[in-house]
Design a protein around this nucleic acid. Structure first.
Lengths: 215, 215
DNA sequence: GTCTATAGCCAGATAGAC
DNA sequence: GTCTATCTGGCTATAGAC
């Protein structure tokens, strides 16, 4: 009994590592996120997956469909992160602290992901409309109400929920999206840049809270 | 005398509009900034310029060289904007106000530019090293000193110049880079989005100053 | 300087054996 | 399911007439 259950868990883990389909998706993720849809080559994905080019078409029919699988996967990782700001029940101040710390850890684990999503949406803005109806798609409704309430109670200074949300996203996401630009301006190596990003876990939360909190 | 001078001015204006070389550069700018290096097609650039594909190679030798001309051009438009924050002599508070207002106007005039630069630098991070030695390349030296002085005098709260610079860039640049993402989350049409960006001219400056200024 | 025509290459996709 | 071999189209780049 126990062994079947354990085998099941092992199989689930294997599912991504040893299935051909999982290997392809993983290789495709790396190549698409590094080079984008237009720059990616099916040959390179096949090589990274350790299989043949024909197999890619056997499993995913076309480059476009393989790309869409990778994109949806990436978006479904990002969406819950954003929902932590929008739908959680705690105070805005606490949410900002938690989100900032969590998000920066998240991006350190998935460095190419935010830029990938932003870039491909700029290439094809309509693409996101397909995802909009999914459950779990980030929605501002609850956050709008929360901001209005905390402003009314005098917990935070007057600000629109939209602008606050944009500011939170900007301060957290931009440094990773613009990484090469920032590294050159600040004139740092990789280690110093990572240190800077670690520091931002505290820095960004303080920056936002100083700005909005009533004293 | 007067007429030769006037003709000269007219010629300078014509230089970009009627020279074949200028027409090419203008068409290339539009196509490269919309589709990126990999997605751009020489045929489309030729069509937009109203000339033949062979002419592109006659003037710029290769797609790569044409691309580099466009990129350097774009970067030389962006750099002075950033230097307004780094090298101007006024107080940080005033610089933030001016920069925010100016930069947002700048991007409304050149909507694809920031995303283009960020995207292409992610594709090829070494590319920026070529530009680094140019005069006018943004440099943090002076800004570091200014921040240290204003912190010491108690004009602003303690913050590192690097983090402050990143925050200023993030709040100003990100909303345009992530435009499709934001438009979907906020659930707005084009007009409402533009209104939101107009509002940010005041919003962003206030947000930053509230956060760093000692009261 | 400007065009047409085409060389030469490379990528995505498929056929078909095993 | 997995492979090799190949088709087909589109792209950059060039040759060469005017």
């Amino acid at each position: 009994m126990l062994t079947t259950w354990l085998n099941c868990l092992v199989d689930m883990k294997k599912a991504k590592d040893e299935n051909t389909e999982g290997q392809i998706l993983d290789a495709a993720k790396n190549v698409f996120q590094a080079k984008g849809m237009d720059g990616a080559r099916m040959q390179e994905i096949a090589d990274k997956a350790g299989i043949n080019k024909a197999m890619l078409h056997y499993y995913y029919r076309s480059k476009q469909l393989l790309f869409e699988a990778v994109f949806k996967n990436a978006f479904s990782l990002l969406a819950p992160q954003l929902n932590a700001i929008l739908n959680d029940d705690s105070y805005i101040e606490d949410k900002v602290k938690n989100f900032t710390s969590n998000y920066i850890s998240f991006v350190i684990k998935h460095p190419y992901l935010p830029n990938f999503i932003i870039q491909e949406l700029n290439r094809n803005p309509d693409f996101i409309l397909n995802l909009k109806d999914n459950k779990g798609f980030p929605n501002l409704e609850k956050f709008r109400k929360q901001v209005a309430i905390e402003v009314k109670k005098g917990i935070i200074k007057p600000i629109s929920a939209e602008q606050l949300f944009i500011n939170i996203l900007a301060l957290n996401i931009f440094p990773f999206v613009a990484r090469p630009l920032i590294m050159t301006f600040i004139n740092t190596d990789k280690a110093a840049y990572n240190k800077l990003m670690e520091d931002r876990k505290a820095e960004v939360a303080n920056f936002i809270i100083h700005s909005i909190k009533n004293t």
